[in-house]
Each structure stands twice: as structure tokens, then as C-alpha cells.
Design a protein around this nucleic acid. Sequence first.
DNA 1: TGCGGTACCTACTGGAAAGTAAGGATACGG
DNA 2: CCGTATCCTTACTTTCCAGTAGGTACCGCA
Lengths: 214, 214
Amino acid sequence: MDVDERRRPKRLPREVRERQILDAAVLVFSRHGYHDASMDEVSEVAGVSKPMIYAYLGSKEDLFGACIRREATLLFEAVTAGVRDALAPDMQLWHGLGAFFRFVGENRESWRVLHRQAASHGGPFNDELLQMRARAITLVTGLLTRSTPRPERDEQARLSTEALAAALVGSAESLADWWLDHPDVTDKMLASWLMNLAWMGFGDLVDGKVWTPS
Amino acid sequence: MDVDERRRPKRLPREVRERQILDAAVLVFSRHGYHDASMDEVSEVAGVSKPMIYAYLGSKEDLFGACIRREATLLFEAVTAGVRDALAPDMQLWHGLGAFFRFVGENRESWRVLHRQAASHGGPFNDELLQMRARAITLVTGLLTRSTPRPERDEQARLSTEALAAALVGSAESLADWWLDHPDVTDKMLASWLMNLAWMGFGDLVDGKVWTPS
DNA sequence: TGCGGTACCTACTGGAAAGTAAGGATACGG
DNA sequence: CCGTATCCTTACTTTCCAGTAGGTACCGCA
């Protein structure tokens, strides 16, 4: 009876604690945003005292940066894993969108942190996030570029392609946000809708033409 | 010599001061974000002491809400003014996009406040912003709905149309953000690119088909 | 000229939260 | 059973900033 195991928190290796702390931080940041989240709350949710966080993960900014980095990497890996290089461009896009919405559906908090909170800073971790988005845009840009038959690409064409990639990435992000308010639809429906918009355009959709995976 | 007019701030009517304060607040909020913006800095930029702000505009949240409301209203009015009801759907969209990018180009700070800062809150003014975005989505949804020839609209079709409207609105927002990093392009180019994406889709664009205003 | 009201200020308070000091407890190798 | 590295805590300091108390200067009007 000398040791009550529920009250006595076990000593755990650093690696495990760091994961717990990061998990808690993602949750708290996603709920309150960067500034309204307090280190005290993170420590409470993580079940660890505050100095541990500072010892393991550094300052609040460092902690936030670590969250962003971890979640963004996971998301990016999920998307790239979904894209198979050998496929036709439209099918690549299709799989990429599918992987994206699947990830968001399974990791709501991660998505909130990435998209809402991280975007609203001038801080250093914002770069981290912008960089990740830039990689996504690059990915899509390459996909679009490869899908154009003739390679006479002047500066104008290159710019417009990148812009369209940015627009496409943005529409996926916004659709993911819209999803938060309409939880009844599935990830597959979203992917299919956006795919149709991106590949067919409203002009064709109005005429009843649709895109379907070949 | 009894009165140095430059040092002696004139007594101004409330209306004027409120405008000055709001202008300053939009600037400061757009630079630092909601939390890193201090009322002291707002008061300094506005050329007015802090208690004036509290007397006229209320708390910090109230002030921010007032900024959002003013800027969002301006943006929304600019867009709706650009859309002529009598035109064909594609032309309506075209004019709406043009008005949107023109506004963003002429009001960068407003845009930053609206899109970046306001989105990252759970607070009450976030509703203000979400509501404004919802109105934009509604506008586009109506436009798209009217453009479909046959009105056999089941729930599924209605949902997908709204989702596409959300995606379109989001892509315009993202493109506006992308613009901040690529200042050389013009508002007309952006509107044209996005119009092509939205109406023709990549499938047609790859084939060399383009949309042009009729 | 005095009275009320509005514009406006300096200088403070209170509280929240980032970050830290200093030490306690546990495992483990010798 | 002793040393030492690691895990972990309570309780504190410090800074920053939203919000306010209380008072001054100016205007219109009787």
C-alpha cells in the first residue's frame, strides 16, 4: 500500500514524454490558437509539469514549431504516398486529393493547427508552414506542367501554372475547412467534387459532363 | 505664439476620431496579428490616447470586430457591385472575380486582417468573418445553381454545389495570398487565370481551350 | 460669466502567463 | 550501499498589457 500506482506517475523515457507533450500541444493549440494557449494548459493536458516542457522542447515558439513540423510532415507524406508517379496526370491528382482529404478527416486537430493557427503569424515557424505549402504547390505545379503536351513554356505560362496550382491547393484547403461545418459528407465525395471542378470546370459540369476515374 | 498648432491636437468630432482609430487598428492588426498588436500601438498610430479608444470603440475585441465588420462590408460591397444580375453566369463570375482582385490589390492591409488574422480565432468576431464568407459562398452558390439548366436538384446536388462554391471562394482567397508573394502580376491576370480554371478546368486547358469574355 | 457637456490626457492597477531556480525522487552501475 | 545521471516537481520572479481612475482643456450656450 506504500505505492498508489494511479497517483504515482511513472518515470518515463524522454522520447515518450516528448510525444505526449507534442500530442497535448497539438490539441491545445488547435483549440485556442497559439496565443490563447498557455503552457500551463499544455502541461496539464500532457500530464507533466511545465519545466519538463521547457527542458525537452524549449520555448513556446519552439514547441509550436515542433508541432507544425511534425504534423506538416505527416500530411505531406500522406499525400505524396498517395500519388503514384507512373499514372496519368489526372489520376495522380485524383489520388493526391483522396489522400489529402483522408488525412484531414482522420486528423482534424492537426489540420486546424496547420491551416488556421500557423497561417496567422509573422514568426519563424510560419516559414516552416509556408515552406510546406510551397512544396505542395510545387508538387501540383510539376504535375500540371507535365500534363501539358507542348513544352514551349514562356515565363507567363510558368507563372500562370504556378498560380493555378496555388489556387488548387487553396481550394482543397478551403474545402477541408468547409468540411468541418458539414461533417456528413465523406472524404471521397469531397475528392470527387473537387476533381470534377479542377479537371472539367463549371462549363463542362453545366453541360452534364463529369470526370470519373478511368 | 500662444498656440503651436502642430503640437496642439485639435479637438475633433467623435466620428472623425473613430475613423482614425479604425484605420490605425486595421494597420496594426494587419502587421502583428490580433494578439501581438497592443492597444498602446494602436493609440500611438492613431495619434490618440488609449482611453479614447475604450471610450469610443470599447474593448480590444470590440475594436477588432469593428475592423473586421468594416473591411468585410467594403469587400463584399465591392464584389456585389461588380456582379450584374442581367448577365450570363460565366460573365457574372468573371466580373465578381475582377472586382474581388481589384479590391484586394487596392487594400492589402484590409485583406491581411480579414483573411489571416480573423480566421485564427474561436472568438465572437470570427463569426462575423465566417458569416461574411458564408454570404460570399451563398452568392456563388446561387450563381452556380442558376447556371445549371435542369432544376431537378436533390440534396446531394445541392450539397455538392455549395461545396464547389466554397472551393471556388477558397481558391480566390488563396490566389490573393499567393499574390502577396508575386506582386508583379496584375489583378486582371489573376481573374483571368482563375476564371479559366473554374470554367474550363484543366482538362480543357491542357487541350488548349480557353475561356474569354464574350 | 458661469454651467454643462464633450473631447482628451497622464499615470496607474490587476492579472495572466512565459520562463526559472532549486531541489526531490528514482533508476542503475559499480 | 554510494555516486551520478536522468526524470520530475513546487513555487517563484518578471514582464507585458488590457483596462481604468481621476482630472484637465476646450466649446457652446444661457
